[in-house]
Design a protein around this nucleic acid. Sequence first.
DNA 1: TTTCGGATATGAGTGACGCTCATGTTAACG
DNA 2: CGTTAACATGAGCGTCACTCATATCCGAAA
Lengths: 241, 241
Amino acid sequence: MTNAAGGTLRRRPSQRRSLERVERMLDECALLLDEVGYEQLTTKEVARRAEVPIGTFYQFFPDKQGLVRALALRNLDAFLDRMAARVAGADLRDWTDAVDLVIDEFVEMKRTMPGFGVVDFGEILTTPGGPALPESRRMLDHALDNNVIVADRLRSLIVELLGAPRNEGLGRAFIVAVEAADAVLKLAFRAHPEGDPDLIAECKRLVRRYLSEYISEPPVEPGPGTPGEREPAGDAGTDGD
Amino acid sequence: MTNAAGGTLRRRPSQRRSLERVERMLDECALLLDEVGYEQLTTKEVARRAEVPIGTFYQFFPDKQGLVRALALRNLDAFLDRMAARVAGADLRDWTDAVDLVIDEFVEMKRTMPGFGVVDFGEILTTPGGPALPESRRMLDHALDNNVIVADRLRSLIVELLGAPRNEGLGRAFIVAVEAADAVLKLAFRAHPEGDPDLIAECKRLVRRYLSEYISEPPVEPGPGTPGEREPAGDAGTDGD
DNA sequence: TTTCGGATATGAGTGACGCTCATGTTAACG
DNA sequence: CGTTAACATGAGCGTCACTCATATCCGAAA
């Protein structure tokens, strides 16, 4: 988990020079992804910008997808670290604060970290050529894992500060929540370069609302962001009180 | 909307022969997508299987993406039709029944319609090379629109059988719901060839739960599928037991 | 120091791809 | 039957991802 390139590298760089080169290639890959997208990205250009001959590139990365996959893993590590740090460094009123914090962190990374807007751990590697056959299925597992890792870590964080609510479906619930949030935030950034604020707010609402069925209900917010003008009076059904 | 190839075709086929050819190419494209995925799919192979010379292929489709985009639009049309038909042909107790029905229809199409598992209207065209720059942004808008169209149609259906709940954020809410559901169902089919039943159930729960904040609350189900062993009362705190 | 051997570095080259365009074919009209 | 324009065709072009024969390095043995 510490090293960005889990098992995606052909040969693990040992010497300092090699390590720097791999890092530089990933950096340039990220930049280039922002500039031209995945399809237009060429391994030659990445190598050229990183000042690495193309042959050396292929000594470390198995192929173009491997390069992007390695970047996605590095992004995953970065996100997990920053997520944990952010949650640890704040005092939360309840678990919904943690949800907001994590989403904020994700949004901030989408805004500031090069390439993160294009490959926030693992979609490219899976969706773009998204195959449905068993053999090609391998790739999918990988991406699946990435989101599962995030979900699992997030669940740990929240369960920790909640005192472990025993709940069988909780693991799956967090996976679903992360998957859904990811999609909505992707939409938010498609709609607006800095991420549509309304959609980001809706994303938080979606996750809170969904997870609150699995976690003891927090004090429910008044009404939906924009609509709120008239509160569904008979809301007695769901919320705790 | 009637013709699958909205503005994606280079030249609109007029004669019967041409129409059949375009249709055949789209059919073979769908089949091939299931077999090898988007990246491995080659225009030559599509043309060969459709028994159309490659030159003719490029008379109708601007490029490889255009081909898949046209397929996505055809899929969109098919889904909208079947969605409307399914909802119309059932008697619903409340709006949540409509949600379930629509999701069931989507799942069935993923299972049975060739290529639909790989391109359910528009992701490939956007995500795979998912660029972040203004110029390349064009493609994204398209996919955005596709989901928006589904969301809009679904909203119409539900609002109709509900008596129009006035709510400003409703349009956005449906877009968010469709986007989230799409992602979770994608996950369900990554996890299981026929679509993981638990995840499909969770998808329905997610959408119901989220939309219920915008639509007058229906009789809420007892507890979450698996967990439900003890319903959270009013315990808003962190206490587990 | 010199010699040697295996690890590492390199970029011209290879096959395959997306796509074009000069040429061949058809068909409508006088 | 001749003229003209629309349509059909596949060899060919530029470019891509990726390889591999060769060059270069570097530490240890002599």
